[in-house]
Computed example of a mutant assay.
Amino acid sequence: MTDRFWETKSLDEMTQTEWESLCDGCAKCCLHKFIDDDAADAPATTNYVQQSEEIHFTSIACDLLNTKTCSCTQYARRTELVPDCVKLTKDNLKEIFFMPTSCSYRRLHEGRGLPSWHPLLNRGKKTAMHREGMSVRGKTVAEADADLDNFEEYIALWPLQDLD
């Protein structure tokens, strides 16, 4: 894809192929996350982050993630194999509050455009993204190897925010 369709089309106007190509492949969505709420009466599940809450990404990656390529080894079946896996769609994008601020879908939804390291701006290659430290490559522990009873010890300290 050589045309810059993301600059001329809304997310709703994009074809499925265009939609899929927006994913930068950082794999941050494949990380376990938790909400720090400090409130004893906080709900067990939530559909939004309250003002007193903060989302923490951990370095614990889904066992289906290939951490070298930052891609799912079972992409077509991921929601079947991992019931908590959320398939990002045009319809649910507004409700998925836990996507990192660097997520290309979130950036476009918020009117911020694609980051300079995005593969669509770099001949389809993830090299710039990895070089800038915006992917999870080399920063994770497999879910099967993590001590999930002490997940707070895995809070990600590497860049989750936008670089540009």
Rank of each mutant, 00 (worst) to 15 (best):
E7I: 06
Q74F: 04
L114V: 07
I96T: 11
M14L: 08
K125A: 14
R106T: 03
T15W: 10
M134T: 09
V82F: 05
E143H: 15
D38P: 01
A42S: 07
I60L: 12
P115V: 01
D149H: 11
D24W: 12
E143T: 06
C85Y: 08
T73E: 15
T69G: 08
D145H: 13
Q50F: 03
A44S: 10
G25L: 04
E7C: 11
P115Y: 12
K33I: 04
A44K: 07
S104V: 01
V86P: 07
H32Y: 13
D91A: 12
T58P: 02
L31R: 00
E7A: 12
G124P: 10
L81G: 09
F97T: 01
T127V: 09
E18V: 01
D41P: 02
E20N: 12
A144L: 13
H56K: 08
Q74T: 09
N92F: 09
H109V: 00
N47L: 01
M99T: 03
K125I: 08
T89E: 12
L148Q: 10
K9V: 00
A142T: 00
E95N: 13
D84T: 01
T89Y: 11
Y105V: 08
W117F: 14
L22H: 13
E54P: 01
K33W: 02
D149M: 10
R77N: 15
F34M: 00
G113C: 07
T140K: 08
H130S: 05
F57C: 06
N122A: 08
C72P: 03
G113I: 03
E18A: 00
C62T: 01
L11F: 13
M134P: 03
A76S: 14
C85V: 04
I60E: 10
S52Y: 10
P119I: 07
D12P: 06
L148P: 09
A128K: 15
M134L: 14
D38C: 03
A144N: 15
G138K: 09
I60F: 08
C29W: 06
L65I: 09
C29Q: 02
T67D: 15
K90L: 06
C29S: 05
E53T: 02
K28A: 02
S52Q: 09
Q16A: 11
V49D: 00
K139M: 15
G124Q: 14
D84M: 02
R137L: 04
I60A: 09
Y48C: 05
H130P: 07
C103D: 08
E110M: 08
H56A: 04
D145Q: 14
S102L: 14
